[in-house]
C-alpha cells in the first residue's frame, strides 16, 4: 500500500475540489461535507482539467466542457457522461487526508482496451 498525505481536511472547502501533488501524482481531492474523495485530475472525456472545469453540487460532479456528470461518492456516470470516474481510496488520519496512490490512475482515452475498435 502507498498511503500518502494529500492535504489537510481544512485545505478543501465543502462542495469544492482541489488538485494536489501526491508524491509526483496529480490527485483531485473533493470534500463532500461528511466524506473526502480523490480522483485523477482530468475529465475522462477530453482530459479537461477538472480542478477548473469541475463543479460540485448536491453530490454530483459536473464538467462544464460538455456537462458530463458523475456521482461523487461512487464515481458512477450520469447521462450524458459515457465513462465512470476513477477513484483513489481515501482515509483520514487525524486532520490529514490520506490517499492510496499505489499506481497512478489514468483513463483510456485511446480506447486501447477495445480490440474491436483498434486497427
Amino acid at each position: 500500500m502507498a498511503w500518502k498525505k494529500a492535504c489537510s481536511v481544512n485545505d478543501v472547502a465543502v462542495d469544492t475540489l482541489r488538485k494536489f501533488d501526491v508524491g509526483g501524482v496529480g490527485v483531485l481531492v473533493a470534500n463532500l461535507g461528511d466524506e473526502f474523495k480523490a480522483y485523477p485530475p482530468a475529465c475522462p472525456h477530453m482530459e479537461e482539467p477538472l480542478e477548473q472545469s469541475g463543479v460540485c453540487s448536491g453530490g454530483l460532479l459536473t464538467c462544464t466542457k460538455h456537462l458530463w456528470q458523475w456521482d461523487m461518492r461512487t464515481g458512477e456516470q450520469r447521462a450524458p457522461a459515457e465513462k465512470p470516474l476513477l477513484m483513489y481510496d481515501v482515509r483520514l488520519d487525524g486532520d490529514d487526508v490520506m490517499v492510496n496512490v499505489e499506481h497512478e490512475l489514468e483513463y483510456e482515452y485511446e480506447e486501447e482496451d477495445d480490440d474491436d475498435f483498434e486497427w
Binding site: 462542495d15 453540487s57 447521462a79
Partner: peptide, 9 residues
C-alpha cells in the same frame, strides 16, 4: 448547476 440545481438535460 450549483444555485439553480438544474439537471444537465
Amino acid at each position: 448547476i450549483v444555485e439553480g440545481r438544474l439537471p444537465a438535460s
